[in-house]
Design a protein around this nucleic acid. Structure first.
Lengths: 153, 153
DNA sequence: CCTAATTCCTCCAGCGACTAGAGGAGCAAG
DNA sequence: CTTGCTCCTCTAGTCGCTGGAGGAATTAGG
C-alpha cells in the first residue's frame, strides 16, 4: 500500500460497495460515477465520496430504480437547497409501479398454482399445465402485459 | 383474398394472437415457430396449427416463462405420450421463482412506502428519500439481489 | 532482486427478448 | 394506373450489465 489514506483501488471499492468491478467501470462510462484520478501506473483511485456515491447507486438499484432515475436522484443529492419534490415524485412513481407489479405477479401465482395442482402427473395428453397454456380461455388471467420470468433476487 | 381457406398472413396471425408482427418473425428466427410456407410473392402463410402455437407462446410469455422453457414445453406438447413430469417441474420451478419475486417486491414496497411517507416535502438536505438511499444501514431491506425496475405490466 | 500470482487496464462481444428503422417489393381497391 | 397498405430483408438499438482476450502493473514470497 503506497497509496494515500482514503484512496481505494477499484477492487477495494467493489468489495466495499458490493458492486462488481466491471459494473463500476460501466457506471463511469455512462457518466453515473465521475472518472476518478489515476495513479502513476494508470489505475483508478477512489476516495470516500466515490464510495458513498457507489453505495447510493447500489442501494437504489436494489430498490429497482432505473439508471436514469438514479441519475436524477444523484443530481438532486448534489444540490441540497433544492426542493425534494422531484425525488419524492420519482419514489412515488416507483412505488406505484412496484404495486402494480405485485398485483400482477399475485394473479400469476394463482394461475401457476392452479396449473400445478391440477396436474395429474400422467401423460402430456392430459396435463393441466400444457392444457392451460394452450388455451387462454380456460384461465382467469386476463391480459396483463409481459412479465420478466427471472428478474432479480 | 386469393389465399386458401385456413391460411393467414403474418398480420392476421398477429391480430389473432396478440403477438406483434416483428415478434412473430423473431420467433421464427430463433426456431420457436416453424418457418411457414410462402406464397408466390414470398409472403408467409400461416395455418391454424401455427396460430395455436403462437397463442400458446403468447400465453406462456404472459405468464413469465422464458423462451427456453417455452421451447421445452412446446416439445412436450408435441409428444403427448410422454410423462408430463417435465412440464410439471418447469411450472413448479417457475411458481417458486414467482413467489420469491413477490416476497422481495413486498419488502421493497414497504421500504418505498416508508421513504415516501417520511418525506417532509422540504429541501433535499432533509429528504427521507435521498437519505435512505444514501444510507443502506437505515433501512430494513437486507440484501436481495437486483430487481428490474419496470418490467412487465 | 527475481519470479509468480494477483490485480488492474482497454476493447470488444454477448445476453434476453424484443423493437425500430431503412429501403424496397407486392398486392388489393378505387 | 395510382394510391396506400402490408409485406419482405437487413441492420442496429434497447437496458444493465457480464465475460473474455491480451497485456501492463503491482504485490507477496523466496
Amino acid at each position: 500500500m503506497t497509496a494515500a489514506a482514503g484512496q481505494f483501488t477499484i477492487g477495494e471499492a467493489a468489495r466495499a460497495s458490493g458492486v462488481k468491478v466491471p459494473t463500476i467501470r460501466y457506471y463511469e462510462e455512462i457518466g453515473l460515477l465521475p472518472s476518478p484520478p489515476r495513479t502513476e501506473g494508470g489505475r483508478r483511485s477512489y476516495g470516500g465520496e466515490d464510495l458513498r456515491r457507489l453505495a447510493f447507486i447500489r442501494h437504489a438499484r436494489e430498490l429497482g430504480f432505473e439508471i436514469e432515475a438514479i441519475r436524477t436522484l444523484l443530481r438532486l443529492q448534489d444540490e441540497p437547497d433544492q426542493s425534494c419534490a422531484a425525488a419524492d415524485a420519482i419514489a412515488r412513481d416507483h412505488l406505484v409501479a412496484v404495486e402494480r407489479r405485485i398485483a400482477s405477479l399475485t394473479a400469476l401465482r394463482a394461475e401457476l398454482a392452479r396449473m400445478v395442482e391440477g396436474c395429474s402427473h400422467g401423460h402430456v395428453s392430459e396435463c393441466r399445465v400444457i392444457e392451460i397454456l394452450a388455451d387462454h380461455g380456460e384461465c382467469r388471467h386476463h391480459h396483463g402485459g409481459r412479465l420478466d420470468a427471472a428478474g432479480g433476487l
